[in-house]
Nucleic acid binder design. Structure first.
Lengths: 162, 162
DNA sequence: CAGTATCCTCGCAGATACTG
DNA sequence: CAGTATCTGCGAGGATACTG
């Protein structure tokens, strides 16, 4: 019988992995954070508004908001002087998630709900027209697909050899 | 004392929520799935290669792969006739995650690792040059920011009124 | 209203052993 | 090598009660 059976092996944390995707996963790689950021993009700011919109329990919401603030994606600021309550707003780092969030929305618009549907989630406010799908273009302007790209490991990412 | 204390309240599932972001979160909204998809983009195909690259335990990897196959992002196909082992490859639905994955990588390149660094994760194989950051453009071609957009609730998403 | 503290129940990740 | 089965224990997520 092995002694190791009684040693605890904690969940492998991702923060120490110096890989872009691991960092993104550590920041918003859970279901609640994505929905919180989505609501923040819509303009939701208060605790109760987040809770009503997402339907998550208060304890979980508190921890997720704390985590997003610690990650620099949201900023918590008291409103007024009485500090009766605070508001959460997107930082520049949080707003920079727009392309990623938009790409995720367009992906599910097309591949989860079906091609027949028109994209409806994000519209250009000026023209009231949907935003066309994001495209990946190289520096010379031509469209590139996955096959045209090389994914580098990046520091901290293991070099996986297929 | 309340009887409800003894009733189990399960974790709220996301699959039934008809919201694009909730669907995306349900599909790849956990840390391991993002890393698995990243490796699949790199060309990783076999079980052991995923495990060595990500460092996750076999049981977890088995379940995550199963989930990604069930979500239609990966396809599992036996290699050869002996069916000694199988390979996992990206479906079209999985390949369509490229803009979202790229946007996440570019976001962490800039905002987690710092602006000083040059993007290094994804390069155009033809020119050996990094892919420029994804930009959100309206139908008329002009660049749009978050403030120029209206985020619609979409079916199943609660209408949050800020 | 905006959280925090406490308690409770699984869910999920890790290790190990086992099968083909 | 490619998984599956089982065990274990933390900890995420839910409810409730409480504070300011």
């Amino acid at each position: 019988m092995s002694l190791k059976r009684f040693l605890f092996m904690p969940r492998t944390p991702l923060n120490h992995v110096l890989c872009g995707w691991a960092q993104a996963a550590a920041a918003i790689g859970d279901q609640w954070s994505i929905l919180i950021v989505r609501d923040a993009f819509k303009g939701v700011k208060t605790f109760s508004a987040f809770q009503k919109s997402i339907g998550v329990s208060k304890g979980v919401l508190s921890r997720r908001l704390e985590h997003l603030v610690a990650s620099g994606i949201l900023a918590k600021a008291p409103v007024g002087l009485g500090a009766s309550h605070s508001e959460y707003s997107l930082t520049p780092k949080g707003k920079a998630l727009l392309p990623a969030m938009l790409a995720l929305a367009q992906w599910s618009d097309k591949w989860v709900f079906g091609e027949g549907n028109e994209p409806y989630v994000v519209v250009d406010a000026l023209n009231q027209a949907p935003v066309p799908p994001l495209e990946v273009r190289a520096q010379d302007g031509r469209r590139v697909e996955l096959e045209d790209l090389t994914i580098l490991p990046g520091p901290g990412c293991p070099k996986s050899e297929p």
